[in-house]
Design a protein around this nucleic acid. Structure first.
Length: 894
RNA sequence: AGGCCCGUAGCUCAGUUGGUUAGAGCGCUACGUUGACAUCGUAGAGGUCAGCGGUUCAAGUCCGCUCGGGCCUACCA
């Protein structure tokens, strides 16, 4: 027994009666979170005799705030980790955060702007210093929020993508890929985000449908009076045109082969080139070619060795090359001016409305500018093949597997990854240049200097895409490139839980780099969660103001209720509408558990939790609940294994509320409350406590706080584990407890009671009227059980006398679960209401019987359906006929 | 354009390899506080499983088409 007393956790000193009527999560949740951390229950030991289990957290933005999606993913990761830990695994859930390059830099830049300064005014060194201060200031928030949720992370192993270990891994990976020829530097067309001032990868471009214009512009043909018409959505790019393309087999333009057009306003000669990529059907079938400002044109220009011209700069303004009339203008301003000039000079043929898709920068929202610039690229094609194979052969499973096709498609069409970013916050590229422009890629300045033979070197100013470091997360966090004990024990990891929205950003890249650098998959399974939406199914967003904050939800409902809700809603392949009413519903479930424990603790006397119980000698209700418990344990375990958390929660909920509270506790009352003078049932208190103990353990991975708080109060829980439910064994199936006969008999008893209650309502009998009951069971075992448990019928259904055997003539009869019920009361007249209800039921029954007879009379059904289906149908028909007869006789009475 | 997912009770969703009578939670209606819980209990109403066609002895479930909603990928200047 513990000596200290803390709020809400006075284990062993407080009986059920002294417990509050309502549960109050705030009173104990963080008390336990602190205590668990202090006692180091979540620290994974290395080396260890135990089998290992490992989950890496998808690192949230270090200065960010967790949203409900994080709460969902954390709940699932914690569930898996706690479950395996209780099963005896050396379970590690490794936490950490991401430096989130662009997002964090933008945040700090906005902050600087509010102080009236800017990144450029500060200079790189000062700015990066500020970034680190910012990181330190906010860093604790993520842990705090995970603590609120009850996350059982091993904080001694926390990692940050920019910490020294991970930075070393990043340099190592970069240098290796460079030396293998997979990383290279070159001048290519990239997606440029003018507002951010950096290149971004294809994945960071979001295509949006835009209602724009299609401008038809006349270009004179050199050496003739002919004018051809080209169509463009971006007239400002015409200043960079260097050719006009046509389809090689387009008869309309056969005469233009070998000739040239003249660029309006500029007069530049634009040779006609023939290329099959031109769509003859679109527009006029002639395309102006702007090699440096359109990806398709860039490709075409390469094929035809056309020169290019950069007329739009990285600041989104027209360059000197655009000519003196336009240089310095914003790209959209330039568009207006050019259209005006074209119109004035008679080149503009027409303007049409045009709906098309335009790439926008995911971060800043403005249209992406395709520009040609020097960037670092990583060739992913070989690694993609390995990643494809890993999913095809099941070394890594995607759950749900409907993602397999998407995986195939994306990885089969992968393009080089632009990994350099023109930012200051991130891993600076480990490449150094000599004064004469030679490039040396190395692990450090010293190494580069040694190779170059000089220390007059300048490091490449760019940093790496944030996702480059997160791509290494599963192994860099364990010490790679060193061969560390952690890496040997925990790698490959077991499961990754994350959202499908970062399948390519992150998951695919982890699989690719892991296979490349470690030769193994980073994780054996990826559980992809849906998107958490609001109650109406609308995507949550700050601007819409419909975002739910997990911290506030914890404060209102408690972490356990939130966790249970999210876990119960996680269903494969679909988004999750989150309604606070539902969380309130599961808070009620928490209260139910609390009160069930309160009842047990106040009524069990000297009984204690038992490690196990021999069902021999126990009465039917005890044997029944033990049997149910064993089955539920098996079912929950199987659902966790297959990531069907929704189904596991459902079973836990219905077992606890339905089987345990509604029935077993009610069935135990006559035995526990001795006043009745009924024949005593053996060991009821022990069974009650033992079932409660196991139920709490089963629930613990989903509702860690409530279960620990209550479990600590159970007398004798120390026999299960001396300190904490977190380390107590996860209950497994207990074959000795399973008893199909008792389950069938008790099911019959439950159905009889339910039917009696319904009859009472139908007959308009007040609960105070005692009824006389006659029972006749077709199955002898059930008959014996009903006879033995007749006292329970009396208390649960308010029955006066129970008589075995056929009911007297005048009784109201019914048939349920093979048991004929006869109810006699003084008041016999059947109300009109009851009569019509019976008529309706009889009618339904008669038509069902007709359908069953038809089916059973069909020779093909009898020949082709499996035997058990046919027999089931016959038994069902017999029962329906019997019930029909019973109801008829009841009707004839009145 | 290609791919994926969804359409089941008023709402949000379950529904295993086709097999008897399609379920749950919330909401609704009626009744009920004698012993843990009114964040409770008991009972009830509510569904032509989006539509059409096909396969089958048997379809919510498998196949095809149509309609409606959502998402992803790639795009034509």
């Amino acid at each position: 027994m513990r000596s200290e007393m803390e709020p809400g956790t006075s284990a062993g000193t407080m009986t059920g009666i002294e417990m509050d009527k309502r549960f109050d999560p705030a009173a104990y949740e963080q008390v336990w979170q602190r205590r668990w951390a202090e006692r180091g229950y979540f620290r994974a030991e290395v080396p260890s005799e135990k089998p290992s289990y490992c989950i890496m957290i998808p690192p949230p933005n270090v200065t960010g705030k967790l949203h409900v999606g994080h709460a969902l993913q954390s709940a699932l990761q914690d569930l898996l980790t706690r479950w395996r830990r209780m099963q005896g695994y050396n379970a590690l859930w490794l936490p950490g955060t991401d430096h989130a390059g662009i997002a964090t830099q933008l945040m700090v830049e906005r902050h600087l702007a509010s102080e009236g300064t800017s990144r450029c005014q500060l200079g790189r060194e000062k700015f990066v210093e500020r970034m680190w201060q910012w990181k330190e200031q906010y860093h604790g928030n993520i842990r705090h929020q995970l603590d609120l949720l009850g996350a059982s992370c091993d904080w001694t192993r926390e990692r940050f993508t920019l910490d020294p270990g991970l930075s070393r891994a990043v340099r190592e990976a970069f240098v290796r890929l460079y030396r293998e020829g997979l990383i290279s530097r070159g001048e290519y067309m990239v997606n440029w985000s003018p507002a951010l001032g950096t290149a971004v990868s294809d994945l960071e471009v979001e295509t949006k449908t835009v209602h724009g214009k299609l401008y038809h512009v006349a270009y004179p043909v050199e050496g003739s009076d002919e004018r051809i018409v080209v169509a463009t959505t971006r007239p400002e790019t015409m200043l960079g045109d260097t050719a006009v393309a046509l389809h090689p087999e387009d008869e309309r333009y056969r005469h233009l082969h070998g000739r040239a057009a003249l660029l309006p306003l500029v007069g530049r000669r634009l040779p006609f080139v023939a290329d099959p990529a031109v769509d003859r059907e679109f527009g006029t079938g002639l395309v102006k070619i702007t090699p440096f400002h359109d990806p398709n044109d860039f490709e075409m220009a390469k094929r035809h060795r056309l020169p290019g011209l950069s007329v739009i700069g990285t600041d989104g303004r027209m360059t000197e090359e655009a000519g003196p009339d336009f240089a310095g203008l914003d790209r959209f301003e330039a568009r207006r001016k050019i259209v005006e000039r074209l119109r004035d000079e008679g080149y503009l043929v027409k303007i049409e409305d045009h709906v098309h898709n335009v790439g926008h920068s995911q971060r800043s929202g403005e249209p992406i500018e395709p520009v040609v610039s020097t960037q670092w690229f990583c060739d992913m094609s070989g690694m993609a093949q390995q990643a494809l194979a890993a999913v095809r052969d099941g070394r890594t499973r995607l759950i749900p597997d409907s993602w397999d096709r998407t995986w195939e498609h994306w990885l089969s069409n992968i393009k080089p990854w632009c990994i350099s970013r023109q930012l200051w916050w991130g891993h600076q590229i480990p490449a150094w240049y000599t004064e004469d422009g030679r490039c040396f890629v190395a692990h450090s300045f010293e190494e580069a200097a040694a190779e170059a033979g000089t220390d007059r070197l300048t490091q490449d100013p760019d940093v790496l895409d944030t996702w480059f470091s997160s791509a290494l997360w599963p192994f860099s966090t364990l010490g790679w490139p060193d061969d560390t004990p952690d890496l040997r024990v925990f790698y490959p990891t077991d499961v990754l839980v994350t959202g499908f929205d970062i399948l390519f950003f992150w998951v695919a890249r982890m699989v690719m780099t892991a296979l490349h650098f470690t030769g193994e998959v980073p994780f054996r399974a990826v559980h992809l969660t849906g998107l958490v939406r609001d109650a109406e199914g609308v995507k949550m967003s700050k601007t819409k103001g419909n975002a739910l904050d997990p911290t506030e939800l914890v404060a209102e409902f408690g972490a356990d209720a939130l966790r249970f809700t999210l876990t119960a809603l996680d269903s494969p392949g679909r988004d999750i509408p989150l309604n606070p009413d539902q969380i309130a519903g599961y808070r009620a479930f928490g209260n139910k558990i609390w009160n069930a424990a309160r009842f047990a603790l106040s009524r069990v006397g000297e009984a204690r939790v038992q490690e196990t119980i021999d069902p021999a000698g126990l009465a039917a209700p005890e044997r029944w609940i033990l049997s149910r418990l064993s089955r539920v344990a098996a079912e929950v375990d199987a659902r966790f294994e297959t990531f069907r958390f929704d189904e596991a929660c459902n079973r836990l909920y219905h077992f606890f509320w339905g089987d345990f509270c509604d029935w077993y506790i009610e069935l135990s009352k006559p035995a526990l409350m001795t006043a009745g003078g009924e024949a005593p049932r053996p060991r009821v208190g022990e069974v009650l406590l033992t079932v409660l103990d196991r139920a709490l353990r089963l629930l613990h991975p989903v509702m860690p706080f409530l279960t620990e708080e209550l479990w600590q109060r159970l007398p004798g829980h120390e026999a299960i584990h001396p300190e904490t439910i977190c380390l107590a064994a996860y209950p497994r199936r207990e074959e000795l407890w399973e008893d199909a006969g008792v389950e069938a008999g008790m099911e019959a008893l439950i159905e009889v009671v339910t039917r009696l209650r319904a009859l009472r309502a139908e007959m308009g009998l007040s609960p105070k009227v005692k009824i006389d009951l006659h029972l006749a069971a077709s199955d002898p075992g059930t008959g014996r059980l009903l006879e033995e448990q007749a006292p329970l019928l009396r208390s649960l259904a308010r029955v006066g006398t129970v008589t075995l055997g056929t009911a007297p003539e005048h009784a109201r009869r019914d048939l349920v679960a093979g048991v004929e019920i006869g109810v006699s009361v003084e008041k016999q007249e059947m109300t009109a209401e009851e009569r019509s209800r019976l008529d309706k039921e009889l009618e339904k029954l008669t038509s069902e019987i007709a359908r069953a007879e038809e089916r059973l009379g069909n020779p093909e059904f009898l020949a082709k359906a499996p035997a058990h289906v046919v027999e089931g149908g016959r038994a069902r028909l017999a029962e329906m006929r019997e019930r029909q007869a019973t109801l008829c006789s009841s009707l004839e009475l009145s």
